[in-house]
């Protein structure tokens, strides 16, 4: 039970070798200076970009390899983006319900489940509001709930607290910790904030060092 990345990630002219192994319930922190390939690695794991070479496998089955590629929508990943990217024309509730609806749930079931998730991240009071009216912390909670909604096997977090004010971060960190540490989810956290890394992860991969 693990997610293994062993290959070359590339985006445009940039490329580098990445080799990481992620165990469920033991989040991996990805650190390094700008341009060291953190986001590119996350995109590769999510399936938004292909590896230049090498493989990504989950529980032994190949997600990305020389002759296999599982597209993003079939990988069962959840991503929390740095800028959150909530769908602006949907309410917070429908944002969370999105993944469930895509998985085939009825509107009613999806909304029920989404409401429970919002409650679990402490954002049920914003359920009917549009993303534009949410504070950074609220939006981040919604984004987290949205990423977790389809019960992903892999959770990728790209600077999850970058757009959240410093006062809210400890609470969110605690929330995230309670959700991923010790769970069955393989998670990867990219962050500049040393506190995030030290608080949430056991394993740290530094892409700043020669790869």
């Amino acid at each position: 039970m693990s997610l293994v990345v062993d290959g070359v990630v590339a985006r445009g002219a940039f490329s580098r070798v990445v080799s990481i192994s992620i165990e469920p319930g033991r989040p991996v922190g990805l650190v390094g200076p700008n341009g060291s390939g953190k986001s590119t690695t996350l995109r590769a794991i999510a399936g938004l970009d292909r590896l230049a070479s090498g493989t990504i496998s989950l529980d032994g089955s190949v997600l990305d390899g020389a002759d296999a590629f599982v597209p993003a929508e079939l990988r069962g990943v959840g991503v929390v983006f740095q800028t959150m990217r909530l769908f602006p024309h949907l309410t917070a509730l429908d944002n969370v319900a999105f993944g469930l609806r895509c998985a085939g749930a009825s509107r009613h079931d999806a909304r029920g489940q989404a409401r429970r998730l919002l409650t679990s991240v402490g954002a049920d009071h914003v359920a009917d509001r549009r993303p534009a009216t949410l504070s950074g912390g609220e939006a981040q909670r919604v984004a987290l709930a949205r990423a977790l909604a389809p019960s992903p096997r892999v959770l990728l977090l790209d600077e999850p607290f970058a757009s959240v004010d410093a006062d809210s971060r400890p609470a969110l960190r605690a929330l995230l910790r309670s959700l991923v540490v010790g769970s069955g989810i393989c998670s990867v956290i990219v962050s500049h904030d040393r506190a995030d890394i030290s608080d949430l992860t056991d394993v740290v991969v530094d892409l700043g060092s020669a790869g």
């Binding site: 929508e73 069962g76 769908f87 993944g99 895509c102 998985a103 949205r146 909604a149």
Partner: peptide, 24 residues
Amino acid sequence: RDHVDAAYALGGTRWGALRTVVIP
């Protein structure tokens, strides 16, 4: 593109992404 990617990366199917992001 960001939102389309986001939709894919949330377990959204392609139809889901089109319906939720592109068409609106």
